[in-house]
Design a protein around this nucleic acid. Structure first.
Length: 588
RNA sequence: GCGCCCGUAGCUCAAUCGGAUAGAGCAUCGGCCUUCUAAGCCGAGGGUUGCAGGUUCGAUUCCUGCCGGGCGUACCA
C-alpha cells in the first residue's frame, strides 16, 4: 500500500478529530484504539461521529456508554465542537458555527483551499497506452481519463509525476499494416492520403490478410524484416507510427488530456534491453527452459492441474513476448526514473500478467523494498450483448466519434436552453460540456466494474454529471455578474449563526471544509469517484442553498457572508473539476 | 479444474479500516419560473443487499458453502 506523508499541517477535520480523540483515549488509559472518526451519515447525529469507543470498551470489558462519557469529559473541544454520547456508544460531534466561520476564512485565504502538500515522491503513471495497430476506441477512455485525473491530482499534492504512455508500436500485428503500405507505395498511391483515415486503413489491411494468401505471406515477411532492423521496413514503420501518433495526439487534445508527444515511451523503446533482461534473470538463476521457451517459475503462481505457471520471457523461436518488454520497462522506471511509486492504469484482465511482472521484478531485484509498483485495474467496457467491444469486428466505437457526438448533443441542448448566446459562445459551451460529460461519466463510477456502453448513459447531461457541476458553477458566476462584483475584492466575516442562517447554508459551509478530505481520500486507491461524489454533493448543497437563501437581496452582513460562501463554492468546484480534467464555464 | 473480479430499487450506480432508519441519479407520479440561469428545486412511490449458514452488541462490508455472471489460466498483446 502506498504511503503518503503530509508535510504541512493540513486542514483535514476528520484527521484532526481522529488524532485528537485517539490521544484523548490514550490519556484516559485506553491505548491502541483507533477513534474511527467519520462524517456523520445523518444530520441529526451531528457532523462527525467517532465509532471507536465501542470496540475499545469491548476489548477492555467496560461499559461502552460509560467509557464514552469519560472520553467526552476530557475531550477539550470547546472552541470547536460539542460532543455527545448516543446509542450504544457512538460519539456525535457537532461543529460550532463560530469555528466553521473561522475555518472558512482560513480556507478562503488559502490558494490550495486547505489541502497541504505531501512529501514529494517520484511517481510514474502508466496510462492510456493504446495499441497503434488499432484505432483508438471507446475502450481506451477508462485508462486515459482515470489516469489523467490521477496525474493531475498527484501533481497538485506536490509529487514529481512522470507520465508514461506505453503505446503498443511493435510486434507481429504490424506485419500486415506494413505489407499493405508497401503495396500501396508500389501501386503509386499517395500514402499520406491513405493514412488520413486510419480506420479504413486498418480494415483494408486486415481483410486482405484474411482473403489473400500471398498478402498474408508478405505480411509475415515484414514482421521478420521489422524485427531484424531492415532499414526500408523501419522507414515505412516510422511513417506509420508518426501518422498514428498524430491521430492519438489529436484525440488527446480534443479530450483535454494532459498527455503530450514526449510522454510516449512505446514498446519499441525497450527493444535493445530485451536480451539483457533475459541474461539478468538467467544470472539470478530464475530461468528454466521449458518446451524450448525460457520461463520464470515462481511458487506463488499455479496453473492448470496444480502445475507451476510459467512466465515466458523468451519464446522458443527466440522472439520476446510482452512479458520481457514489461520487465525492461520496470527496470527503466525503477532505475532511470527512480520511481518511488509506479502506477499502472491497465485493464483488470491484465491482473495476472502484471502480478507476474512485479513478482519477477522483486525476485530479480529490479525493484527495491521501498519502491511500490501497483496495478490500478478497471473493468471492461462491454457492448449491448454484454461482450467486450472488439476492434476486429464491426462493433467498434471510435473514441473520436464519441467526442464529436457528445459535442453535437451538447450543442443541441445549449441551443434549446440558452438561445441568447452567440454562435461562437454556444460552440465553446458545447465543447466544454461535451467533453466534460464523457470524462466525468468514466470518473464518477467505481472503476473496477464492467459496464455496458450506451450513448445515452455516457452522454447524459443531468443528474450526477459534469454539466450539473458546471451549471452550479455558472449560477454562482452569474450572481457576481449581476451586481458586477469582483469576488477577489470582497472580504469580511462569515455569519453562520443559526438564527440568521438557513440549514442549507450551514450544510454548504461544512461541505466546503470537507474538500480536503475528498481530495486526500483519492490516492488511497485512486477511486476518482470519491472526488466526483463530493463535488456532486457540494453542488446539490449549493443548489439547495441557492433556492432557499437569497444572496444579493440579503441584508448587508449576511449578503457579504453569502457572497463569500458562493465564491468559495465556485473556487472549490472549479478546482475539483480541474483535478478531474474537466473545465468550467462562465455561462452555459 | 484452479485463480481473480462481480451480484444492492425497474435501469445505471453509492454506501469512507464492520456502525445508527442501505443512499443518489435516470425512469414514473405530484408540486414550483412577474424574484440571483428551471441543464434547476421541493415532495411521493420503489429494497428479504443472489441464496443459506457462521463470527459480532451490530454485517452490503469479514468467514464458509452453494447459485449466477465476467475475465484469466505456456510461447497474441
Amino acid at each position: 500500500m502506498a504511503t503518503f506523508a503530509v508535510l504541512a499541517s493540513s486542514m483535514n477535520l476528520r484527521h484532526f478529530l481522529d488524532r485528537h480523540i485517539e490521544q484523548s483515549l490514550l490519556s484516559i488509559g485506553v491505548p491502541d484504539s483507533p477513534a474511527l472518526v467519520k462524517q456523520s451519515g445523518r444530520p441529526e447525529f451531528g457532523h462527525y461521529q467517532a465509532d471507536g469507543v465501542m470496540g475499545a470498551a469491548k476489548r477492555l470489558g467496560k461499559n461502552p456508554r460509560n467509557l464514552a462519557a469519560s472520553l467526552i469529559a476530557v475531550l477539550d473541544l470547546n472552541e470547536i465542537a460539542t460532543a455527545s454520547v448516543a446509542g450504544p456508544g457512538f460519539i456525535n460531534i457537532a461543529l460550532k458555527p463560530t469555528f466553521i466561520a473561522t475555518e472558512l476564512s482560513k480556507m478562503r485565504k488559502d490558494t490550495r483551499l486547505g489541502v497541504a502538500k505531501q512529501k514529494p515522491q517520484n511517481i510514474v503513471v502508466d496510462y492510456s497506452s493504446p495499441n497503434l495497430a488499432k484505432e483508438m476506441h471507446i475502450g481506451h477512455l477508462r485508462s486515459t481519463a482515470i489516469g489523467d485525473a490521477a496525474v493531475r491530482l498527484l501533481e497538485f499534492l506536490g509529487h514529481q509525476v512522470t507520465r508514461v504512455n506505453h503505446m503498443g508500436d511493435w510486434g507481429a500485428q504490424f506485419g500486415s499494416l506494413l505489407a499493405y503500405m508497401d503495396r500501396l507505395t508500389k501501386k503509386g498511391e499517395e500514402l499520406a492520403t491513405e493514412l488520413k483515415d486510419l480506420e479504413v486503413f486498418y480494415q483494408s489491411a486486415s481483410q486482405l490478410f484474411k482473403s489473400d494468401e500471398s498478402f498474408a505471406n508478405e505480411a509475415r515477411q515484414f514482421v521478420v524484416r521489422l524485427q531484424s532492423g531492415d532499414p526500408e521496413c523501419l522507414r515505412l514503420w516510422q511513417q506509420f507510427i508518426d501518422e498514428s501518433l498524430n491521430h492519438c495526439q489529436a484525440t488527446y487534445d480534443a479530450l483535454d488530456i494532459s498527455l503530450k508527444r514526449e510522454d510516449v515511451h512505446a514498446e519499441s523503446a525497450y527493444n535493445e534491453g530485451l536480451p539483457q533482461v533475459v541474461k539478468a534473470l538467467e544470472s539470478k538463476g530464475l530461468v528454466q527452459v521449458s518446451d524450448g521457451a525460457k520461463c520464470v517459475f515462481l511458487d506463488e503462481f499455479v496453473g492448470k492441474d496444480g502445475k507451476p505457471l510459467p512466465a515466458i520471457i523468451q519464446k522458443s523461436d527466440g522472439g520476446y513476448p510482452y512479458m520481457a518488454t514489461d520487465l525492461v520497462a520496470v527496470q527503466y522506471r525503477s532505475e532511470e526514473l527512480k520511481a518511488d511509486q509506479a502506477l499502472y492504469f491497465v485493464d483488470g484482465r491484465q491482473s495476472l500478467h502484471l502480478a507476474q511482472v512485479f513478482a519477477i521484478s522483486r525476485a530479480a531485484g529490479f525493484i527495491s523494498e521501498a519502491q511500490h509498483f501497483r496495478h490500478i485495474p478497471f473493468g471492461t467496457i462491454l457492448n449491448k450483448a454484454g461482450k467486450p467491444l472488439k476492434t476486429r469486428d464491426g462493433g467498434v466505437v471510435k473514441l473520436a466519434d464519441v467526442v464529436t457526438e457528445s459535442i453535437a448533443r451538447a450543442l443541441v441542448l445549449v441551443n434549446e436552453k440558452t438561445p441568447s448566446l452567440s454562435d461562437q459562445a454556444k460552440q465553446e459551451v458545447a465543447r466544454i460540456v461535451g467533453i466534460g460529460a464523457i470524462k466525468y461519466a468514466e470518473l464518477s463510477r467505481n472503476r473496477t466494474t464492467d459496464y455496458i456502453f450506451d450513448w445515452d448513459t455516457m452522454l447524459a447531461f443531468e443528474g450526477n454529471t459534469a454539466p450539473y457541476l458546471q451549471y452550479a458553477y455558472t449560477r454562482i458566476r452569474s450572481i457576481f455578474r449581476q451586481d458586477k462584483i469582483d469576488p477577489n475584492k470582497i472580504d469580511g466575516e462569515f455569519h453562520l449563526h443559526p438564527q440568521s442562517s438557513a440549514a442549507a447554508e450551514i450544510s454548504l459551509a461544512i461541505k466546503l471544509l470537507q474538500y480536503v478530505e475528498a481530495v486526500e481520500s483519492v490516492p488511497d486507491d485512486y477511486q476518482a469517484n470519491l472526488l466526483c461524489n463530493y463535488l456532486f454533493e457540494l453542488s446539490c448543497q449549493f443548489m439547495s442553498f441557492y433556492e432557499s437563501c437569497p444572496v444579493l437581496k440579503a441584508e448587508a452582513k449576511v449578503r457579504l457572508s453569502r457572497l463569500m460562501l458562493c465564491d468559495l463554492t465556485a473556487k472549490v468546484l472549479q478546482h475539483g473539476l480541474n483535478l478531474l480534467g474537466v473545465s468550467t464555464l462562465e455561462k452555459m
